[in-house]
Amino acid sequence: MVVIIADQTLKPLSMKKSVGVKSKKVSTDIPNDLLFSILSKLSLKSLKRFECVCKPWTLLLKNPIFTRLLCDNFLHNFDSYYHDRSLFLSHLKTINFDTKFVLYSYSGERYENMTNLNWPNPFQEEDPNFDILGSGIINGVLCLISCSHQSIKFVLWNPTTEEFKVIPNSPFDFFGDRFEINERGFGYDCVGDDYKVIREITFDLESDYVTKIASLGKISHNPFWEIYSLRSNSWKKLKFDIHHEKINKGVCLDGVCHWLCERTYKDDKGNEIYLLSFYLTDEVFLITPIEDHTFQLRTTTKELCVLNGFIALISTNEDMVSLQISIFTPCLTLSIRSE
């Protein structure tokens, strides 16, 4: 695996070689090279905050030696991060000519232990067509969504305690198939100690019904976002008027939901790819542009995922048989490429 660091133009910070014997007094100031070994173990969010410590620290993430350490730690921590973790996947399975969705858990070092999960079916319908929301299990809780028979249901389920909670309908759910629920996310807000589900609702403009009620001025047909909080056990419409095109299935990490978005310019100037993030605690959106030329290639497939505790984008280009993993934090992208 090759680790590529984009910006190599800036000089590294001064790197003093190990400390010598200075005086009898034990000095507790930490020299620069030792600081590197500590700081490279921090999360990117903490690192960005500590750019406010002093001027040389603002250049840390532009220092190739430092980013190299950061990438090494990232790769090294791969095993420890996934230790004792299980992966949950839903599969479409054909049993006696009937297709059914089945939930499996995978555990073990190479996810070799596959278990078919017997779960209490909370969807009040037989063989629901369901999916796992967001990036999977969060604090032991899964959010499942069933989208069959023109009704959409969200369920929170803890496979360990076998508890489940059916999320009540939002007022908009009663409009049934005239509305589409697009993007969604599920995560944990550690400040409010609350589980939240977020979704974007868009309108089927082809529908006569929508056109009719829109013309009556009863309801705007602009897309909008709404959020469910387990504590309040209700849905709330968000104030944001943000609509994004081509958003991939989102992921959630540390109380922030992320989606990959694409904006196509009308005057054929190509398209722009960016990360749309939603902070579950503050309930705010953040947009992070993604600057990378590989995204311009049409054959590239992109998948957003959580990798080693980071938000990562895996792009595969079938023609070039190459794989690129980009690690994100707002304002920063590190790229690891395998060829």
């Binding site: 507790t28 100031d29 930490i30 750019e51 406010c52 001027k55 550690c190 400040v191 503050d282 707002p330």
Partner: peptide, 29 residues
């Protein structure tokens, strides 16, 4: 962190305020 590592703040108050504003998202939690 400044106290812990014995680092002197070399920003002017204006510079620091501006940087903190840009990095406001990192100051949660």
């Amino acid at each position: 962190v400044r106290r812990y590592f014995g680092i002197e703040n070399d920003f002017t108050p204006e510079e620091e305020a501006k940087l903190r504003e840009e990095l406001a998202w990192t100051f949660t939690g």
